[in-house]
Design a protein around this nucleic acid. Structure first.
Length: 193
DNA sequence: AGGAAGATCTACT
DNA sequence: GTAGATCTTCCTA
């Protein structure tokens, strides 16, 4: 049902399936009592050690989180930007979904203030941009997104399954021979075509 | 303690 | 289209 939080089981599937189905869902964040939300329009799936672009390959804390409980936030820094991922994989697997872009829905004025950018099209059209617009940082690392308790969760919103386009992942040094980036075709808020 | 590596962004031409 | 800024994490000593 609309406006319900997506349950943990949603994330207990192959990362590519979860990445595709996250398109059209609502990413919600509450900042000092104000509700901010945006519709997810671009995602990427990452796997375990068999994936040359995956952080799981390097071991350490990120690898541990990617291999454990699904539905938790995985947040880390790249080039001075926080990137927001959600742990997702089949039982006993390893993986995560990177949220690359979303379309602002509620709380746009707050996002503009956080970003220092007035052009709404460029507010959340990139993984580092959307975390800054929604004030998502290391504090959320490891926190579940299938409950509202931490001020960050995902809700059902729209069914855009008929408009999904796939491509190779953006910015990775070495990719898999599979298209693991998914975005909403024609949507002006994706990071690139 | 220091250096290098990024799943990036912005401002410029 | 590309150079330069960015800043945390991880690795080596």
């Amino acid at each position: 049902m609309m406006s319900d939080v997506i349950p943990k089981e949603f994330y207990l599937r192959d990362p590519a399936i979860v990445a595709k189905e996250l398109l059209g869902k609502l990413l919600v964040r509450v900042v000092s009592g104000v509700k901010l939300s945006c519709m997810i329009v671009e995602t990427e799936a990452y796997y375990g050690v068999e994936d040359p672009a995956s952080r799981a390959r390097r071991g350490g804390d990120l690898a541990r989180v990617m291999a454990s409980d699904v539905g938790r936030a995985l947040v880390f820094m790249v080039h001075g930007n926080w990137l927001f991922n959600i742990v997702a994989h089949e039982e006993g697997g390893v993986g995560a979904i990177l949220i690359r872009a979303c379309q602002p829905i509620e709380g746009i004025e707050v996002m503009i203030r956080s970003r220092g950018v007035r052009n709404v099209t460029k507010l959340t059209n990139g993984p580092g941009k959307l975390t800054k617009a929604l004030s998502i940082d290391k504090r959320f690392h490891g926190k579940p997104v299938y409950v509202r308790d931490y001020g960050l969760w995902i809700e059902y919103f729209q069914d855009l399954s008929s408009t999904v386009v796939s491509s190779y992942r953006v910015g990775v040094r070495e990719d898999l021979p599979t298209k693991l980036r998914f975005y909403v075709g024609g949507n002006p808020y994706v990071s690139r075509k």
